[in-house]
Design a protein around this nucleic acid. Structure first.
Lengths: 224, 224
DNA sequence: TTTTTTATGATAGCTTTACTATCATTTTAA
DNA sequence: TTAAAATGATAGTAAAGCTATCATAAAAAA
């Protein structure tokens, strides 16, 4: 028996739910691998179709365009992180410990697996790091936001900001700190790998311990 | 007499220095306006050429492609911010005041003008907020970094991190804090405008006072 | 001033991306 | 076993992202 995880993502993101068919799962699986390989700009539905032995037309039956596929993947990732956080904090009552657990959960999200067969969480994490912000940094952000395309991320931010407010009810910026912890995590992993002079931490291989330490330090200090 | 500001930007960014000719300045001026209007994805050299009554071919004589133009603009912006910081902190000796001045300088960079005739600093700031990270979030980052394309940003980060270390020599993350202040500034202005549930601050019109207050609070708290 | 170099404009064309449409075929469900 | 739904195969279109060539205009050198 295997655990079957299936997230309910916003229906506007796809034309047909890719989690429901073999081809759909193939699209998810190999789009992750291919975007990780070529980067989002060079990624095309044609390349993806060739890779999975299908056709462009078939992929367009699932996603209107590659931008919506990216938003789908990013949402999937945040749902996955939310799920991990929920499980890991289930029996934790102390808010400070809860925040530490949350930080650990998303910094190490790619290693914590039970996992979903057709999703390589580690490569998906790389995509979120390198391409994630492109999901909302577009001229369509307001229209897409009104359709609820960023809800997964906003819900997660709310969850974390509630824990922050529990630790220090006087703290004025719980949402900003919550999102900043996520953004910092992604940014500084990227900086460590590609622009090391923009950060103090280093990432050896996939060892992100220093990121976790830094985020805990920032959170502790700001909430003290 | 007018003040002539001219930044020395990395020569690999352009084929011919656009600061040296009428057409070049026109390209800079109207690419800023056009990217601000359409967003980077929809922006094309063809549209720009039509706008300034020139041709695609002529623009390609200045920039290899729109990606390098974006890096050029972002570098221009960071050079501009560095210049403002340098002027504003010239006669400031106290490191804490210096950091406050730095924060003020970049949050209000678009208003502080003397200005360059053909650059709309305020719209350029919008571009940096909405499109800036796309300059380095690509598969070419390592190659481009080795050519020095991100040097302006790294120099600025170093300047700020030195001030941070002056305030608190024990602080372990001076670079991370420096870049984080910049990234937070951009992110939260964007969030306030487009994804308000991801932040606590609000931006009314172009009033970014709350951003300044938040950054000062974060910096003070972390360095105390 | 005349000549020569350099910058720009006009035009054309080529490849790739981002789609859409149609019809045949396979797979699934009634 | 038949109808319906999903996929594949193929074709085609518009725009993006270039490159090349030649004519002309402007600037610099002679």
């Amino acid at each position: 028996m295997s655990i079957q995880i299936r997230f309910s993502l916003n229906e506007g993101l796809y034309l047909k739910n890719p989690q429901d068919s073999k081809l759909g799962k193939n699209i998810i699986q190999h789009s992750i691998l291919l975007i990780d390989e070529c980067g989002f700009e060079s990624f095309t539905f044609k390349k993806l179709a060739e890779r999975i032995g299908s056709t462009e037309a078939s992929i367009y039956r699932y996603f209107e365009n590659k931008h919506l596929l990216l938003i789908f993947l990013v949402n999937w990732y945040w749902e996955w992180v939310s799920y991990l956080i929920q499980i890991n904090t289930m029996n934790v009552s102390d808010a400070k410990v809860k925040l530490k657990t949350i930080i650990h959960s998303f910094v190490f999200a790619s290693k914590d697996n039970p996992g979903v067969e057709y999703v390589n969480e580690s490569k998906l994490h790389n995509i979120v790091i390198s391409e994630g912000v492109k999901a909302y940094l577009t001229k369509d952000v307001d229209k897409e936001n009104s359709k609820g395309f960023f809800k997964s991320y906003k819900n997660l931010a709310t969850t974390v900001s509630n824990v922050i407010s529990e630790i220090n009810p006087q703290f004025k910026y719980p949402y900003a700190l919550a999102t900043n912890l996520f953004e910092m995590s992604n940014n500084h992993i990227y900086f460590a790998k590609h622009l090391p002079r923009l950060t103090d931490i280093s990432v050896n291989g996939n060892n992100v311990d220093e990121v976790e330490t830094m985020l805990n330090y920032f959170a502790d200090k700001l909430l003290s």
